[in-house]
Simulated assay, not measured.
Amino acid sequence: MEMNFYALLVAAFSTLVVGFIWYNPKVFGTIWMKESGMTEEKMKGSNMLLTFGVSFIYALLISFMLQIITIHQTGALGMVGGDASIAKPSYAAFMADYGMAFRTFQHGALHGFLAGLFLALPLIGTNALYERRSFKYTLVTGGFWIVCFMIMGGIICAWK
Rank of each mutant, 00 (worst) to 15 (best):
V80K: 06
A84P: 07
L16S: 10
A7F: 02
G37C: 11
L49W: 14
F13H: 05
I69G: 07
F118Y: 12
M3I: 15
M43L: 15
G37N: 11
G153H: 12
T15A: 03
A101I: 00
A11R: 02
T15E: 00
P89I: 01
W32T: 13
R103F: 05
F149I: 01
M48D: 01
S134D: 06
M38Q: 10
M152V: 03
Y58N: 09
M1G: 15
A128C: 01
P89Q: 10
V80Y: 05
L119M: 12
F64T: 10
L61S: 11
M100L: 13
Y58F: 13
C157L: 04
Q73W: 11
L119G: 10
N4R: 12
G53L: 01
G45R: 07
T138Q: 11
I151G: 09
A84L: 10
V18R: 02
F102V: 04
I146K: 14
I86M: 11
L61N: 07
T39S: 15
V140A: 10
Y137I: 03
G53Y: 00
L61C: 14
V17H: 13
T51K: 13
F94A: 15
L139K: 06
F102S: 04
F144S: 00
T15H: 01
A59H: 03
I69A: 15
I155F: 00
M79G: 11
L139M: 14
I57Y: 00
Y6N: 12
L110Q: 09
Y91I: 06
A128R: 00
L121S: 04
V18D: 01
G99H: 08
L8Y: 00
